[in-house]
């Protein structure tokens, strides 16, 4: 496959890619720290993955195999659109198989299959600042990160527990990276948080509209915030996948009639299909 001759390989010009890669290198060197970068306008709207796309475009080589998921699935509309964008402007191989991919761009999920060394997981990030709901001013949150002053977030979690008996954050659950920086894991369900810890693959986070890049290098400690007497507990629907029977994967709830009927299916389509094939 060849790429669209009207554009440079992977759309961005080489100067821009170098700028993004410099930001990525800095991000890898300071795990969890948000590095500002000169995000460009992309031919997809802000909020639809422009940060992830710029990171992917900058690290992609002709030998790479790309997988794109949204909500865990390869066949959701935006995943289809981004995958098609890269097969057009980069001409790279694409796949839906987690194990075959070298670069996986994701929105809102981490694949169920453990990632291995050499793979890169690129997250699309809407709001990179983990503290933004508590303090919207970037000038203020920058100071808080510099001083590792995260009391505000602990108070929020404490208040949740005092009021509801447990933390009410279900996704985008804040994590501490390498015991230094508080980081937004992007809006993945808290269920996925433990997968980030000591992951052999490189995790890169791109926020286009907010113009920030951050990273978790391989084998880095990523801890979900909690308290000794209220340890972090990931949750999933207490059911089995209606297609593959999985009891350990994250499930989407599907409304199947207007009498309150529900079924649960794997959110990770590749995981589900692999299991179904194995069963056949």
């Amino acid at each position: 496959m060849t790429h669209d001759p009207g554009y440079n390989f992977a759309y961005l010009d080489e100067g821009t890619k170098r700028m993004v890669r410099r930001a990525v290198l800095k991000a890898v060197s300071v795990p969890g720290h948000q590095v500002p970068f000169g995000a460009r306008e992309m031919p997809l709207p802000y909020g639809w993955g422009t940060g992830g796309i710029q990171v992917t475009a900058s690290i992609l080589g002709p030998q790479d195999t790309l997988k794109v998921i949204d909500q865990g699935a390869d066949d959701t509309t935006n995943a289809v659109s981004i995958r098609r964008f890269f097969s057009r402007v980069a001409g790279v191989r694409t796949t839906t198989r987690t194990r075959d991919a070298t670069v996986i761009q994701t929105r809102h999920r981490i694949p169920e299959m453990p990632l291995r060394e050499g793979q890169v997981l690129v997250y699309q990030v809407p709001m990179p600042e983990p503290l933004f709901r508590l303090e919207p001013r970037l000038s203020e949150t920058r100071r808080m990160h510099a001083l590792a002053d995260y009391g505000l977030m602990h108070v929020k979690l404490y208040e949740d527990i005092a009021r509801h008996g447990h933390v009410s954050t279900a996704y985008n659950y804040p994590v501490m990276v390498a015991n230094r920086y508080l980081m937004s894991p992007s809006p993945i369900p808290a269920f996925d948080n433990p997968k980030m810890d000591n992951m052999p693959a490189l995790q890169l986070f791109g926020a286009g509209r907010e113009k920030k890049i951050y990273a978790v290098p391989p084998y880095t400690r990523v801890r979900s915030l909690d308290f000794e007497d209220h340890p972090f507990r990931p949750h999933r629907a207490d059911a089995a996948c209606a297609f593959c029977g999985a009891r350990d994967s994250y499930l989407d709830e599907v409304v199947c009639d207007d009498r309150g009927g529900r079924m649960f299916i794997c959110s990770d389509t590749d995981h589900c299909e692999t299991r179904q094939e194995a069963a056949r």
């Binding site: 909500q71 959701t76 279900a170 985008n172 809006p187």
Partner: peptide, 20 residues
């Protein structure tokens, strides 16, 4: 872009909200 991105699927986040 950011306002309109709310049209994108949010099944997973909503599912976790449902659980909570």
């Amino acid at each position: 872009g950011f306002v309109e991105h709310l049209k994108l699927p949010h099944y997973v986040d909503f599912q976790s909200e449902l659980e909570v």
